[in-house]
């Protein structure tokens, strides 16, 4: 066989697979979103955006992402720099910090449910300290702020690990000589972090942020476990359209809206953190 065709033969399975299970269904979603009984129209979009829950679920999703992602980024950077200067126990600490990486959003929701539910550990603790004498039902419509905080904490708890892994890997690729050179020129540790670590980490920051932001817009199971219908989010509404309202067209329209937001934010992040050509390590 001609060796020139070998690479194409090797990438053929992936390409076929992705065409069949990625590009094709994507076209189907698009088609379904734009088609109604009367033919091609924006009717589905009008329907979902006109629904009273839409602005709330949009606001909730964006707000959650806007608060959770920056906190995760700061936390992951902090943890990564802490790990970087650690000599003994590094492996153990890293393992502990990356445990949530393997935990699904549903399981994370359930874990935080154990803390926030009416007979849960938060109530037990507050009771033990004498702050409350009867357990409070935190996850109810009377406490929307606490529902929000619970979801936020669960998300931060669960999904900081993926950023940590990407950033630790990225920091590992920065040659030590740069730090030594900066130290010789008199840069303080904080300046070294700002002037060397952060700029050199740009490709990793890009990957980490894109991945996290996209996943933040897809938030679903954590919310289902902790807030249920108290805290509508886009993905939850999509699920409801498909299964409770049995409206496939509307679900597809919602899917495209989420996709649109994801793409928009991906482009913004890529642009903001782009690495000039030739400035790579």
């Amino acid at each position: 066989m001609n060796p020139r065709f070998l690479p194409y033969l090797l990438i053929l399975p992936v390409t076929l697979f992705l065409c069949l299970f990625f590009l094709y269904p994507f076209l189907l979603v698009a088609k379904q979103a734009f088609s109604t009984a009367s033919g091609l129209s924006l009717e589905n979009f009008r329907e979902v955006t006109g629904y009273w829950k839409f602005p709330i679920s949009m606001k909730n999703t964006l707000l959650l992402a806007a608060i959770v992602v920056p906190i995760q980024l700061a936390l992951a950077l902090l943890m990564a720099t802490m790990v970087n200067r650690m000599q003994k126990g590094r492996d153990l600490i890293l393992y502990i910090w990356t445990i949530p990486l393997g935990i699904s959003d549903l399981a994370a929701g359930i874990i935080w449910l154990a803390i926030f539910e009416q007979s849960g550990f938060l109530n037990s603790m507050m009771n033990g300290l004498g702050v409350v004498d009867r357990p409070v039902n935190f996850l109810s419509y009377q406490h929307p702020m606490i529902v929000f905080v619970a979801i936020m904490l669960a998300e931060i708890w669960r999904a900081t690990a993926i950023m940590l892994v990407i950033l630790v890997a990225g920091i590992g690729l920065i040659p030590k000589e740069y730090y030594e050179a900066a130290e010789v020129f008199g840069a303080s540790p904080w300046k070294r972090f700002l002037r060397i670590t952060l700029p050199m980490l740009r490709p990793s920051l890009q990957t980490a942020l894109v991945l996290r932001v996209i996943l933040a817009f897809e938030i679903f199971a954590v919310v289902q476990a902790l807030g249920g219908t108290l805290f509508p989010v886009l993905m939850g509404e999509t699920y409801a359209y498909q299964f409770e309202l049995l409206n496939g067209g509307a679900a597809a329209a919602m899917a495209l809206i989420i996709l649109g937001i994801s793409i928009a934010f991906t482009l913004i992040i890529m642009r903001a953190l782009r690495v000039p050509k030739g400035a790579t390590i």
């Binding site: 990438i11 990625f22 269904p25 996209i214 817009f217 897809e218 999509t238 899917a255 989420i258």
Partner: peptide, 27 residues
């Protein structure tokens, strides 16, 4: 075509993929 292929892979990673489950259910 290597660049194009890598782009397709990265694109896949950047998509909210579970959404594609909807049409796949029909398919």
């Amino acid at each position: 075509g290597k660049g194009l292929f890598r782009l397709l892979i990265l694109l896949t990673r950047a998509f909210p993929l579970p959404l594609l489950a909807l049409p796949l259910a029909v398919m």
